[in-house]
Design a protein around this nucleic acid. Structure first.
Ligand SMILES: [Mn+2]
Ligand SMILES: [Mn+2]
Ligand SMILES: [Zn+2]
Ligand SMILES: [Zn+2]
Lengths: 144, 144
DNA sequence: TGTAATTTTGCAACAATGTTGCAAATAAAA
DNA sequence: TTTTATTTGCAACATTGTTGCAAAATTACA
């Protein structure tokens, strides 16, 4: 698990490696991501962190993390946009998250199934594939 | 293809079968869906149909169609919610669309690949699967 | 370590999207 | 046609996301 000290250190390194300034907001948001063990959406930050930072700053921070390959988006069928930290070596220009996402219909939580690879898809002729998103809906471990 | 007359007849039957009143708004929205051959999002209706009906009515109509199994949602990584008509025998309580969706990165259009089944996914122990959503991003036939 | 250059933040103002209650209009049933 | 039930449009509001700009914080450098 690691101490709070170690987490902070890990986050600073991550930000430095991404050539980003180390700021309170960025550190706090990454802390929330890393503790959460799953996907977060914008409104979660206000709930989890109270009013400790501005809405606009959260939007801009998430945008920055996306561009730097620190987090990735997860498709949803509602209005909310969900994000999770990238585990593999994602970079500014290429994401390498090829895992399945799981959305629990009971608790609402979305999880990255890092060990579950997305399957091969055979497209009809004429379509060029860039990447595949898989979201499984069901009931998670803790909810059944 | 079929004449305009035939389309209208088909739509009336569909609404009657779903036990829904036949109203101008519902007919118009279904026409747009059936002509579009792909997914539509809320803002498309204002573009395609002008101001012929109220925003609120469109929201409520889409909600009704969803509940009746006439249309289904397609997951996205942006804020917009996309819908497409169900081709198979979807009902009020169970959707049977088990096909792959394709989002073209060039033209932005989302297509139902009705012939392309979603593959089997092997989940980790402890997860119960209800349904699987697959969205492929790439370049479509007409764009390359 | 202190100062200048650069980047990030917070606020205000706005735009877009989605929801609810309610009376008027429309469609279905009798 | 008349009655009853459903749907629509409007107003008002809530939530989500965007932009410009000055103040604050961070980084670079002497
Ligand atoms: Mn993930
Ligand atoms: Mn579809
Ligand atoms: Zn759960
Ligand atoms: Zn295309």
């Amino acid at each position: 698990m690691g101490t709070k000290q170690q987490l902070t250190e890990r986050i600073s390194t991550l930000l430095r490696d991404s050539k980003l300034s180390i700021t309170d907001t960025r550190v706090k948001i990454l802390e929330l991501f890393m503790r959460s063990n799953g996907a977060l959406e914008h409104s979660d930050f206000e709930k989890l962190a109270g009013k400790s930072f501005d809405r606009v700053t959260v939007y801009r921070t998430l945008q920055t993390f996306l561009e730097k390959g620190i987090i990735h988006k997860i498709p949803t069928t509602d209005t909310s946009v969900r994000y999770a930290v990238c585990k593999s070596e994602c970079t500014e220009h290429h994401h390498h998250d090829h895992h399945v996402h799981f959305k629990c219909e009971t608790c609402g939580h979305t999880t990255c199934l890092d060990e579950t690879d997305v399957p091969n898809i055979q497209l009809p002729k004429g379509y060029a594939m860039h990447n595949v998103e898989v979201v499984v809906n069901g009931v998670c471990k803790s909810c059944k």
